[in-house]
Amino acid sequence: MSSDIGDLLLQTVPFARTLGLVFDSVGEGGAICRVPDREDLRNHVGGPHAGVLFTLAESASGAAVLSLFGDQLNRATPLPTTATIAYRKVATGEIRAEARLLAERDEVVGRLDAGERPEFDVAVSLTNEDGVLVADLTVTWTLRPNRPPTA
């Protein structure tokens, strides 16, 4: 399922393809992806633009969400609701994102079963090629129940 989720995201999110994101692993509420070092993605200090870093992290968080809740797509749509980012060091070179859900699947699906719109967090760490933390994020996601089609 790992490469399927990464492929799905790259097919449905054209901007992720534009950035050249690569999904290395996806599964069990986690995901790892990276963005190559490209001159056209750099900012004024020579590293990836903040928008590139955010997109990388949000994409990793989305893949992590789909790894646990992809089987719920027939009744709910996963959507990010908020995100916070802390820039720790100047990012340079290829950047790697590692995302992990901070919620239990059974709890989230149980809330969906109860008719709620569950919210849950995904933590994402961004590191450079040397493994140095350059930024971290928390992305809050929801599973919005799908509306029945209207006649």
Rank of each mutant, 00 (worst) to 15 (best):
residue 82 T to M: 12
residue 83 A to I: 09
residue 85 I to P: 02
residue 85 I to V: 12
residue 86 A to M: 15
residue 87 Y to C: 08
residue 87 Y to P: 00
residue 87 Y to L: 14
residue 88 R to E: 14
residue 89 K to C: 12
residue 89 K to Q: 13
residue 89 K to G: 05
residue 89 K to V: 10
residue 89 K to D: 12
residue 90 V to A: 15
residue 90 V to I: 15
residue 93 G to W: 08
residue 93 G to P: 06
residue 94 E to M: 12
residue 95 I to F: 15
residue 95 I to K: 15
residue 96 R to I: 15
residue 97 A to T: 01
residue 98 E to Q: 14
residue 99 A to F: 02
residue 99 A to W: 05
residue 99 A to Q: 09
residue 100 R to H: 07
residue 100 R to S: 08
residue 100 R to Y: 00
residue 101 L to T: 12
residue 102 L to T: 09
residue 103 A to V: 10
residue 103 A to G: 11
residue 104 E to H: 07
residue 104 E to R: 11
residue 105 R to E: 01
residue 106 D to T: 09
residue 106 D to V: 05
residue 107 E to K: 14
residue 107 E to H: 11
residue 107 E to Y: 06
residue 108 V to F: 04
residue 108 V to A: 12
residue 108 V to I: 14
residue 109 V to D: 07
residue 109 V to T: 12
residue 110 G to Y: 03
residue 110 G to I: 03
residue 112 L to G: 04
residue 112 L to W: 04
residue 113 D to G: 02
residue 114 A to W: 02
residue 115 G to M: 04
residue 116 E to A: 13
residue 116 E to G: 03
residue 116 E to N: 06
residue 117 R to M: 04
residue 117 R to V: 00
residue 117 R to T: 03
residue 119 E to A: 10
residue 119 E to G: 05
residue 120 F to V: 12
residue 120 F to Y: 06
residue 120 F to I: 14
residue 120 F to M: 11
residue 120 F to W: 10
residue 121 D to H: 10
residue 121 D to N: 13
residue 121 D to L: 15
residue 122 V to F: 11
residue 123 A to T: 06
residue 123 A to S: 13
residue 124 V to Q: 01
residue 125 S to L: 10
residue 125 S to V: 01
residue 125 S to A: 09
residue 125 S to Q: 12
residue 126 L to K: 08
residue 126 L to N: 00
residue 126 L to Q: 07
residue 127 T to N: 04
residue 128 N to K: 02
residue 128 N to M: 02
residue 128 N to F: 00
residue 128 N to A: 00
residue 128 N to V: 01
residue 129 E to H: 04
residue 130 D to W: 10
residue 131 G to S: 08
residue 131 G to N: 12
residue 132 V to F: 07
residue 132 V to E: 14
residue 133 L to S: 03
residue 133 L to R: 06
residue 133 L to D: 08
residue 134 V to Y: 04
residue 134 V to S: 05
residue 135 A to Q: 05
residue 135 A to I: 05
residue 135 A to R: 00
residue 136 D to T: 08
residue 136 D to K: 07
residue 136 D to G: 05
residue 137 L to I: 08
residue 137 L to G: 13
residue 137 L to Y: 13
residue 137 L to N: 10
residue 138 T to V: 14
residue 139 V to H: 02
residue 140 T to C: 03
residue 140 T to W: 07
residue 140 T to I: 10
residue 140 T to M: 12
residue 141 W to V: 06
residue 141 W to D: 13
residue 142 T to Q: 13
residue 143 L to V: 02
residue 144 R to M: 11
residue 144 R to Q: 11
residue 145 P to T: 01
residue 145 P to A: 09
residue 146 N to F: 04
residue 147 R to H: 11
residue 147 R to Q: 12
residue 147 R to C: 01
residue 148 P to L: 08
residue 148 P to M: 09
residue 149 P to I: 04
residue 149 P to L: 04
